[in-house]
Amino acid sequence: MADQEKTSAPVTRRDFLRQGSRVAALTGLGGFAGLLVSKLKSETLVWQIDPAKCLRCGRCATECVLKPSAVKCVHAFALCGYCELCTGYFVPEPNELNTAAENQLCPVSAIKRRWIEDPYYEYTIDETLCIGCGKCVEGCHRFGNGSLFLQVRHNLCLNCNECSIARACPGDAFRRVPVSQPYLLKTSYSHG
């Protein structure tokens, strides 16, 4: 212990120890950084939903730290059947096939329905209104082509270190993807 030393000795001895520890710490940190290099990735990672695993449970709307959620419904137009009776747009047993509130499935009326030509209608999502509840996704998935699906919108997402939706996702559908490929879009039918 330091007390065995005489008056001025403890200071120098402690300084020496400190210097030694510092060099050791520096070496350690350097070694650590060297080890880390093999685990590094120059790209940052962002969260995204794998549409194939999504169970459309509705938690994206409620669990996100943002209100409304950074998860929105997106539409793969190439897969869409342009149905007149869109099961993503209309409630089950719609009263009439028109845009009246009682017929719409979307709770915030974020889907726009537009006539293209007989008998085809185009459905587009207004993302400023969409809250990511996935009701339309469920409708489209169950009875339609599944061309509507949920995605994390990166202009909104805060990219939390631990995504609170990912934690609550019953389908384990969230994963980190490299920032250069930040979306997992549906591009083809899985079969048929």
Binding site: K67, P68, N95, A100, A101, E102, P107, V108, S109
Partner: peptide, 19 residues
């Protein structure tokens, strides 16, 4: 139907106003 439409509009408007 009219009642549904009015209530729907009010609920949606309220939601975004509160946000």
């Amino acid at each position: 139907k009219q009642k549904i439409r009015e209530l729907d509009l009010r609920v949606r408007r309220d939601y975004f106003t509160v946000l």
